[in-house]
Design a protein around this nucleic acid. Sequence first.
DNA 1: CGCCTAGTTGAGGTAAGTCAATTCACGTGG
DNA 2: CCACGTGAATTGACTTACCTCAACTAGGCG
Lengths: 241, 241
Amino acid sequence: MENNPLIHKLGAFVALKDAELSVLASLHKRRRTFVAGRDLVHQGQSDQAAYILASGWACSYKILEDGQRQIVDFQIPGDFLGLRSILLHMSDHSVEPVTDIEVTEIHAADLLDAFARTPRLATAVLWAASRDEAMVVEHLVDIGRRDAAQRMAHFLLELGARLTLVKLGSKQGYACPLTQYLLADALGLSAVHVNRVLRQLREAGMVTFRDGFVMYEDYDKMAKFAQFDPSYMDHQGPLLK
Amino acid sequence: MENNPLIHKLGAFVALKDAELSVLASLHKRRRTFVAGRDLVHQGQSDQAAYILASGWACSYKILEDGQRQIVDFQIPGDFLGLRSILLHMSDHSVEPVTDIEVTEIHAADLLDAFARTPRLATAVLWAASRDEAMVVEHLVDIGRRDAAQRMAHFLLELGARLTLVKLGSKQGYACPLTQYLLADALGLSAVHVNRVLRQLREAGMVTFRDGFVMYEDYDKMAKFAQFDPSYMDHQGPLLK
DNA sequence: CGCCTAGTTGAGGTAAGTCAATTCACGTGG
DNA sequence: CCACGTGAATTGACTTACCTCAACTAGGCG
């Protein structure tokens, strides 16, 4: 129970009762694994299933006609994959595992049925979706109004904060399987420039990203440089008792 | 009833029953008006109310410490204002009326209560929030991967498509109260460059934006140029019967 | 051993920014 | 009625952040 990252996440917002926990548990149907790099949700496909990420990293992205891609968000354990594709009847984006991943599959009908039976669960999921949207919004601000160095610093700090919430990161740093190409597609930069910016941050003594690990050199300096404000990720305990 | 834009919007997704309609109607408490330019939701404030926009335009934005701002989205009649600030207990963004606006106020407790009593309503709101998120995502792609001209063209087309859904736009064009400064803050450009890009699009015979009106000169050419795909805004009738 | 992917660095080009000046429409007060 | 101020749009000249192309290194693996 407690090692289920989704329950942990939703429980932070809605104090889940036994009835809701059992509905949630009944959703966890088929356990599946996917290998890195092979899409599990395709842009434009209809009637997709959704998933909850149990282990590994994934990313959701959109491809433009000219072949460019924009990574919208990375997903870490506890996050939904393709929730919107259920609600909108069709997927407006693709999802690709960054590493090998484990997921549990959720069918649209089951989820909608669960909402009808336990309205508090629907509220909890709405809350989780809002939190995801807040992160996309922050990402939007990143790309729209910060220069490359601030953008990278802010992004790495935010990722660290998210990982810390699910015990996968600390004030020292975190394991990060992203390549510079993935970072480039997420930040709207070229891979070459990502490399240069990482060097800048390293030489400025703020953060080092090497061999799959992000290590903070001077967290406070970096947070100040990036104008990083983690307050929107906090909350004051369950909104629904 | 039918002239209520929110009911129209949610009804497209969930076939609302009488009970749900009456709960929805009971939400529409206080009618308020705000003048253009004066914020109704402030970034960082806690326990805000949310609103449903009845008439006029608003925008949601974030301010950075250095004074830059990024407009995340524009809201048109039928849209929620500050829904996230209810769910997250505090507002991560500000909302400012672009024109004088009319809204109906919704209190957090009432909304959460309504969800508990009518789960289908919660699902409908979740759907609406997902649709909003899809638009933010498209905006993210715009800023991250399209050059200024494509970005502007895509943005104007998307705005037109949204307005057409609520009968405020057509294949010819639409009334648009945005200034070039607002466009700049939304698209991550400078106001000067917005001006130049609008001229480009005008001289290319695609679209004219003048005196508060966007008029398409060659819709198909523009849609092709911007790689505009409106499919994510469509859907195949109510998901919940 | 050789190939492939990820990362690194340099040189030169370009899209978009900044600064600055001008016009125009509008409102307001002398 | 006109002088004035203000906000929006427009355009030109110059600067810069980031891109593209290209070459090279280092590790992993058949």
